[in-house]
Protein backbone atom coordinates (compact mmCIF):
# COMPACT_ATOMS: atom_id res chain seq x y z
CA UNK A 1 0.00 0.00 0.00
CA UNK A 2 2.78 2.44 0.94
CA UNK A 3 4.81 1.47 -2.12
CA UNK A 4 1.86 2.12 -4.45
CA UNK A 5 1.29 5.54 -2.89
CA UNK A 6 5.02 6.39 -3.22
CA UNK A 7 4.96 5.53 -6.94
CA UNK A 8 1.67 7.39 -7.51
CA UNK A 9 2.79 10.60 -5.83
CA UNK A 10 6.24 10.47 -7.44
CA UNK A 11 4.73 10.19 -10.93
CA UNK A 12 2.23 12.98 -10.23
CA UNK A 13 4.93 15.28 -8.79
CA UNK A 14 7.22 14.65 -11.77
CA UNK A 15 4.55 15.33 -14.39
CA UNK A 16 3.15 18.34 -12.52
CA UNK A 17 6.56 20.06 -12.48
CA UNK A 18 6.81 19.57 -16.25
CA UNK A 19 3.32 21.08 -16.56
CA UNK A 20 4.41 23.92 -14.25
CA UNK A 21 7.19 24.83 -16.68
CA UNK A 22 4.80 24.66 -19.64
CA UNK A 23 2.14 26.98 -18.17
CA UNK A 24 1.83 30.46 -19.64
CA UNK A 25 -0.42 32.33 -17.21
CA UNK A 26 0.86 33.39 -13.79
CA UNK A 27 -2.08 32.14 -11.72
CA UNK A 28 -2.08 28.76 -13.47
CA UNK A 29 1.64 28.54 -12.70
CA UNK A 30 0.96 29.23 -9.02
CA UNK A 31 -1.81 26.64 -8.96
CA UNK A 32 0.46 23.99 -10.47
CA UNK A 33 3.22 24.97 -8.05
CA UNK A 34 0.84 24.42 -5.14
CA UNK A 35 -0.25 21.07 -6.61
CA UNK A 36 3.38 19.99 -7.10
CA UNK A 37 4.41 20.92 -3.55
CA UNK A 38 1.46 19.07 -2.00
CA UNK A 39 2.15 15.91 -3.99
CA UNK A 40 5.89 16.10 -3.37
CA UNK A 41 5.32 16.54 0.37
CA UNK A 42 3.01 13.54 0.45
CA UNK A 43 5.57 11.55 -1.52
CA UNK A 44 8.25 12.38 1.07
CA UNK A 45 5.82 11.51 3.85
CA UNK A 46 5.00 8.10 2.43
CA UNK A 47 8.68 7.43 1.72
CA UNK A 48 9.58 8.04 5.36
CA UNK A 49 6.67 5.88 6.45
CA UNK A 50 8.09 3.17 4.20
CA UNK A 51 11.60 3.47 5.65
CA UNK A 52 10.42 3.66 9.31
CA UNK A 53 11.89 7.15 9.88
CA UNK A 54 8.50 8.74 10.25
CA UNK A 55 8.75 9.96 13.85
CA UNK A 56 12.09 11.65 13.25
CA UNK A 57 11.21 13.48 10.09
CA UNK A 58 7.69 14.58 11.03
CA UNK A 59 9.02 17.78 12.58
CA UNK A 60 10.34 18.77 9.13
CA UNK A 61 7.16 18.02 7.21
CA UNK A 62 4.87 20.33 9.17
CA UNK A 63 6.83 23.55 8.49
CA UNK A 64 7.23 22.48 4.86
CA UNK A 65 3.47 22.29 4.38
CA UNK A 66 2.90 25.66 6.03
CA UNK A 67 5.79 27.18 4.06
CA UNK A 68 4.03 26.10 0.89
CA UNK A 69 0.98 28.26 1.44
CA UNK A 70 3.06 31.20 2.70
CA UNK A 71 5.32 31.03 -0.38
CA UNK A 72 2.39 31.05 -2.77
CA UNK A 73 0.77 33.99 -0.98
CA UNK A 74 4.06 35.91 -1.13
CA UNK A 75 4.49 35.20 -4.84
CA UNK A 76 0.97 36.37 -5.57
CA UNK A 77 1.35 39.51 -3.45
CA UNK A 78 4.60 40.37 -5.24
CA UNK A 79 2.97 39.84 -8.62
CA UNK A 80 -0.02 42.03 -7.73
CA UNK A 81 2.31 44.81 -6.52
CA UNK A 82 4.33 44.73 -9.74
CA UNK A 83 1.10 44.82 -11.80
CA UNK A 84 -0.03 47.91 -9.89
CA UNK A 85 3.29 49.64 -10.55
CA UNK A 86 3.08 48.76 -14.23
Amino acid sequence: MILISIILFLIIAAISIIQLCAEAEFFSKMLMFFYFIINFTTFILSYFLFSNKFGFIISMIFPLIILNSVLILLFIKQKVKSEEKW
Partner: peptide, 14 residues
Protein backbone atom coordinates in the same frame (compact mmCIF):
# COMPACT_ATOMS: atom_id res chain seq x y z
CA UNK B 1 -6.40 18.10 9.31
CA UNK B 2 -3.56 20.54 8.59
CA UNK B 3 -3.59 19.59 4.91
CA UNK B 4 -7.33 20.23 4.61
CA UNK B 5 -7.14 23.60 6.39
CA UNK B 6 -4.10 24.70 4.38
CA UNK B 7 -5.64 23.66 1.05
CA UNK B 8 -8.87 25.55 1.76
CA UNK B 9 -6.92 28.69 2.75
CA UNK B 10 -4.56 28.65 -0.22
CA UNK B 11 -7.24 27.88 -2.80
CA UNK B 12 -9.40 30.66 -1.35
CA UNK B 13 -6.47 33.11 -1.58
CA UNK B 14 -5.58 32.13 -5.16
Amino acid sequence: ILNILMTITTIHAI
